[in-house]
Design a protein around this nucleic acid. Structure first.
Lengths: 190, 190
DNA sequence: CTGTTGACCATAATGTTCAATTGGTCATTT
DNA sequence: AAATGACCAATTGAACATTATGGTCAACAG
């Protein structure tokens, strides 16, 4: 069996998207990095956007895996949500690709990037929502709108981790957990 | 006494900023609308940005006045915070000028507009912060970091009023109050 | 003399053009 | 059958020309 060209292409594209962003990445460049003819890319992916989408799908899976790993079924719900969300946002804050895309979304508003970032947020909310539903079933928290609760949790976390830093000293991980316990979970406790 | 030219200029500029935004408003246009020589503007304001700043200061005062009016000292703290924040954000959502600026901030990132929007947010947080400090003094809520609490309240409100609508049915005013009571104030209750 | 003005200027924004680049195709090669 | 890269239409952006804009100031009016 010859080299796995699809894998080569995905790896090359990921590298290029991470380095230069979506718009600034050319298909020629991807082909060059992957040591592959440009036409080959189009035997695996309908177009540039579909290639991008597949990479984002992988990214979402990775996030999910990282979050799952951070969770310990023995711990209480609020501790696990904190761990999961913190991991996801740290991931987002550190990974080359997400940083670049976040930047491109704000600075250029590339439509394909905007779309994908929405998908990313939806995936995170969906993930948290499932955890909330589980917790309600187990009686760990009181009944509430899971979608709304997940939404509030994510927005609050993003604010605390990304926005607060703009005008203040960053909050310690422990501090964020405490804040969350006090403000959100006390209101959800049974 | 001749006509109050300064007032004319401010009114003209406010109208033009509301209609076309900061960048798209020219000093010639302001002078024309105000029925004033362009040079006159520069006897009252050092430059375009200072004129803009004065208008925003007025806007902030108006917001403060509206919020103060919405507050009823007889009511509990959480009800007043809800009323004040809701008024402020409704104001922001409905007033021509803030809508235009919000749009300009996102779409073009005009530096002067960005600066001013930061100032606006700081003013709102400062306002809420004072209310929080009062409430702590009166023993209405438990001790907490007033700045952080004000920050969280604003961010959550903004998320609920502006972001939630992007993917869902808008939340009723009463619903927002309930959510806030449940998620934030239960954690602050004494 | 005080307050006002608009023609004027340097510079920034905008429109225009066109050669180079890019995403995507497909006849040819391996 | 799989892979390729020359090729094409569409898009982009560098370079230049033109216009518009913020800000000044000598002249003017009351």
């Amino acid at each position: 069996m010859s080299v796995d060209r699809k894998r080569l292409i995905i790896e090359a594209a990921t590298k290029s998207f991470s380095l230069f962003g979506y718009k600034a990445t050319t298909m020629d460049q991807v082909a060059k990095i992957a040591n592959v003819g440009k036409g080959t890319i189009y035997t695996f992916f309908k177009n540039k956007e579909e290639l991008f989408d597949e990479i984002i799908s992988t990214l979402i899976s990775e996030m999910k895996r990282e979050a799952d790993e951070a969770i310990d079924p023995e711990l209480p719900f609020h501790e696990n949500v904190h761990r999961a969300l913190y991991k996801i946002l740290e991931f987002r804050k550190q990974h080359q690709l997400t940083i670049k895309l976040f930047q491109e979304e704000k600075e250029m508003g590339t439509p394909a990037v905007l779309e994908v970032m929405t998908r990313l947020e939806a995936a995170i909310i969906h993930y948290v929502k499932e955890k909330v539903i589980e917790a309600i079933k187990k009686g760990e928290i009181q009944a509430c709108d899971p979608e709304l609760t997940a939404f509030i949790m994510l927005k609050l976390y993003v604010s605390l981790i990304f926005d607060w830093e703009k005008g203040h000293e960053p909050l310690e991980k422990e501090r964020i957990a405490k804040i969350f316990e006090q403000y959100v979970f006390k209101g959800l406790s049974v």
